[in-house]
Design a protein around this nucleic acid. Structure first.
Lengths: 142, 142
DNA sequence: CTAGTTGCAAAGAGTTTGCATGGCG
DNA sequence: CGCCATGCAAACTCTTTGCAACTAG
């Protein structure tokens, strides 16, 4: 079995989309917002192209795809190169949107546990744990 | 402040939808699956009616609505006293789409660990762990 | 009888696909 | 020059809305 790896062309559109995502840091955007961003900058990038790049970048692990709470549209977020997101869990705060990276032996154990006892190989790149972060927990009580 | 609570009629359709959901136990179904179920049983219940009942039942807390993280469609699940999906994890197989409920002390420990050590209150209802299930792992090797 | 309900069809929102043209290597 | 990428428009999927007929209370 050989990897199906077609040649990749570096296009202006692909570069601009990735650069835009990178420039946003940990802020997430929807596909539509990306389209609008380039339209406003008088750069024509079709929505088809945006979707195709987002899909590819997500598959490559360069960006992360999330769901907005309404479930209707997805949003995307750049993954900075400094940390390897395949090796730890991601916690997403539903209140403030913060994305927290957690590398911890306890969580590693859970991964092994799922594999051994539940026969399930977890994909950390795709998996995000949703909940409420410490800051927002405190704020709720106040 | 007065509740806007219009009179409620008990209709055959509403009763059948709730009964169907209850009969499924902790299995999730999409709106479309419900429509098909009744169509197959030669019971005509329009999709509009299904959606309207699902929305109402979810608002009343009788069923739970949640979005599969692929974001395409919503799933609904009856809330019974015995099984509570707030208390266990959901594993979603990326290969075959199977949704697996896992209630396990190891996972409970992780929930506590996140709460205590990482100051994060996980929302199990929203959280789905992605990966590959046992069947598909075996199939991949074959 | 009155007001909530139903179901068809059509509208919406977000995303994907078909296909001819354009551009990277 | 070959092959991937692009972008327009149309198709698709899931969900909501308009509206006239229907029915529980």
């Amino acid at each position: 079995m050989k990897q199906n790896r077609p040649t990749r062309y570096t296009t202006s559109q692909g570069k601009q989309i990735l650069e835009y995502l990178a420039s946003l840091g940990d802020t997430h955007v929807t596909a539509y917002e990306i389209v609008r961003h380039f339209a406003a900058a008088e750069v024509v990038i079709g929505q088809t192209t945006v979707y195709r790049h987002l899909e590819r970048l997500a598959a490559e692990g360069k960006i992360r795809k999330y769901l907005l709470s309404d479930g209707r549209s997805a949003c995307y977020q750049y993954i900075s190169g400094s940390t390897d997101c395949r090796e730890h869990f991601h916690l997403k705060c539903e209140q403030c949107g913060a994305l927290i990276h957690v590398a911890c032996t306890q969580l590693d154990q859970m991964q092994g546990h799922l594999r051994n006892k539940h026969d399930f190989q977890i994909n950390l790149l795709k998996t995000t744990l949703y909940g409420t972060c410490g800051n927002c927990l405190t704020a709720d009580k106040a």
